[in-house]
Design a protein around this nucleic acid. Sequence first.
DNA 1: TAATGTAAGTGGTTAATAGTGGGTTAAAAT
DNA 2: ATTTTAACCCACTATTAACCACTTACATTA
Lengths: 152, 152
Amino acid sequence: MSSQYTFTGEFSFSIDSKNRINIPSSLRKQFLKNDNKTFVITRGIDECAWIYPMNEWKKIQKELNNLSSMSKKNRIFLRNHLRHANILKYDSQGRFVLPNSLIDYTKISKDVTIIGVLNKIEIWNPKILRKSDEKDQIDDPSYEQLSERVNI
Amino acid sequence: MSSQYTFTGEFSFSIDSKNRINIPSSLRKQFLKNDNKTFVITRGIDECAWIYPMNEWKKIQKELNNLSSMSKKNRIFLRNHLRHANILKYDSQGRFVLPNSLIDYTKISKDVTIIGVLNKIEIWNPKILRKSDEKDQIDDPSYEQLSERVNI
DNA sequence: TAATGTAAGTGGTTAATAGTGGGTTAAAAT
DNA sequence: ATTTTAACCCACTATTAACCACTTACATTA
């Protein structure tokens, strides 16, 4: 279940008039040859977008494939996770076009904060990120549980 | 049971005066040579239509054959899925004619939402889809179980 | 430390493709 | 025979993707 990608770090970028965002080259370098510059970008659980390199996404896909559409619960789960998943490529300059649906969801307009989180890359509106930081940081009891499971 | 097709994403289209609907080119590109632009469209379990590329449909037929007709549930399922299954081709522009029976079933009139769900493509009336979203989305605790099994 | 070279980030232009609309002919159906 | 339906073709427009170019930052080396 561990990933071959170990994205880390935070970066400040901007989105241009054609809704293009640059993937920081240091993160891009971790992409594999057979990712073929391709990745999946989708809604994060928070108000951000998540990027998975193609090889990482394939793992997720495999698990989704095991869910039968005969069950209603599964149908809804599958639909809701796949409908927001966009398969994209970055161009020769390392940029991709952020789909409109994700512009709306992330509320990104000019500035963009990009964060490497191990197997995925997060794309944020810095203002939303700051708000989210303030809200979540403060004594959320679930952190306790996490810190028992995750050894940092 | 995993599929060679991995349809994803959501698309907004319209149906024209001749009841033609365009299959998004990014999904069409996944069709194989020997699908020969041919697919099966049938009633979805929800209020939408399901499209299976020909090669995928053949697999499904095999599975349906294995369902015993002894149980009432199976008989009903088989009947509902086979009787409404239309074999169609899309034209050189990537469009197909949505059969009247499915226009009635999906209640599609002008706008169409198309969603890729791995091995199939769903065709929705956006209004019906929205209603379905609202009804089903709301904190179903069983999602928690799913998201523990599926690592996203 | 100044100079130089390389790579990274940003901006814009052009060419190709996708989506949509409609017409024409051939094949069914009434 | 007449009307419908279906396959095929052509055309327009808007969007997207590929390409080229500039500038800034960083790193290396004299």
